[in-house]
Design a protein around this nucleic acid. Structure first.
Lengths: 258, 258
DNA sequence: AAAATATTCCGTAAAATTTACGAATTAAGA
DNA sequence: TCTTAATTCGTAAATTTTACGGAATATTTT
């Protein structure tokens, strides 16, 4: 959606193609430089940051819509994507913005009852993606994008700060029940790398030695013969996820005791 | 909503008061006779069982809508109620039913583009309630209600069997992280009672002795001086939840290790 | 070539938690 | 008073988690 005709049609007729009152807002997590990051878009005109969301087509299954939106925004297919909450307690969205402001910012004519200005509930998804494989596409409404360290996310538009917070909380809880990392790390990685990833996600220190022992004991990762050169120190071995054990753990969950 | 005028207005003008394309469908869990049960309504005309759902008012916060619907259906206020998923992959709802069938069943005139027949996504909530305090109100569309053992739930209308399944799965997972029982048991209960409740929810046996030890060790329950007479056997002591420890555990969660 | 430095990783033991189960206690009926 | 069936107490083994010492290793510096 880049040409002015397309945008005009989207604003004027979008309610015929999309379900009104609902949007999908994915929190896209990536990992780089020992930092957990999320992808944000800068909205033209509104001059603020927000999630790379989209709308659900009238006859499109919800989960399919989520995958489509992610694909359109990042080029990624078949990645870890999970719904975690629907937000509908702060009843306004664009409503806070007047249609005249919209007109001024984008030079588009809109009526006061335009569908984009109605109350919108937001379906929250979170995605875990390989940072290096993302190629972001901006469109008419978004003038910029940036990966932000989760520790330094700026205030977001609408109620989206709450969305990000809840996504992070869900991820932190889930890491106790499911293996995480397959989509956040390159295919081959070192023990210190996955160790730092987990520390970063959980926001606390984990004993290196015990952590590695645990992952190996669970059968989730296996040691390769190769090593990585990292400068003036001992070279760490490379590891790989055990696909089967990983999938099993994803499905069945790592349940603990009572 | 019982008089024919009210119903007619709801069908014809409901889309002005409620958000279209969205419904809230609560899975209401109660506990009785050592069985975990859910409350289902029998829909007049459709001749099938379904969840006691409702719609979201146009300017009403989502969580408030959920509480209102539950209150209207069961008379209960301020109970444990939690959103767990939004279902939108089977894109149809009443759509499968023709408007003519509707006309025949209820004797109401409806157009083919009536809002009730459009695609509807369902926001799933689950509630834990004191079985004995529920007083169900049926209305024009529902002719009967019944508590069903979760092990013997009949096939449900639309995609609601999936909703119930997911609710149960969420409850079973959550029981590892949060105390559960405050809303499902009477104020005073015995160890065997809470023990059976947990076994029933999890669907597996738990050692009585170790289970009790754990609950007491966590400080979640405290022993009272009273006992309950249960016939020709040793009388069990009554217990009560420790409100503070319980609330703490609810908030912080009972996290396990890595 | 040896020493210094920074990092990886192997191994063991203590502590805590979970699991398993024997046996004493108790209330009512026979 | 004895029997029966359920509750409750207590202890020990097994497993898991936590803690931490120290060896191995790849460069740069001396």
């Amino acid at each position: 959606m880049n040409s002015l005709e397309e945008v005009d049609d989207f604003v004027k007729n979008g309610h015929r193609h999309y379900l009104p009152h609902l949007s999908i807002d994915p929190v896209i997590f990536g990992y780089h430089d020992q930092q957990l990051k999320i992808l944000l878009l800068k909205w033209k005109g509104l001059n603020g940051w927000g999630l790379p969301g989209g709308f659900i087509q009238r006859r499109e299954p919800l989960s399919q819509a989520a995958h489509r939106i992610l694909q359109e925004r990042t080029g990624l297919e078949s990645i870890f994507l999970q719904q975690f909450h629907i937000f509908g307690d702060s009843p306004y969205r664009l409503q806070e913005r007047s249609t005249s402001e919209f007109r001024a910012n984008y030079g588009l004519e809109v009526n006061d009852d335009n569908w984009l200005f109605e109350r919108t509930l937001s379906v929250g998804y979170f995605a875990l993606v390989d940072y290096s494989k993302v190629s972001v596409r901006t469109d008419f409404f978004t003038e910029d994008y940036q990966w932000w360290d989760v520790k330094q996310v700026p205030p977001l538009l609408f109620d989206q700060s709450e969305v990000v917070e809840k996504a992070l909380a869900t991820l932190r809880l889930q890491i106790y029940h499911q293996p995480i990392g397959y989509n956040l790390l390159p295919e081959k990685f070192t023990l210190p790398e996955i160790h730092t990833l987990y520390e970063t996600i959980l926001g606390k220190e984990l004993d290196q030695r015990n952590f590695s022992k645990k992952l190996v004991a669970l059968g989730l990762i296996k040691k390769l013969a190769e090593q990585r050169a990292i400068g003036p120190h001992r070279s760490p071995y490379l590891y790989q996820f055990e696909k089967e054990a990983y999938e099993d753990a994803l499905k069945q969950g790592i349940v603990h005791t009572y």
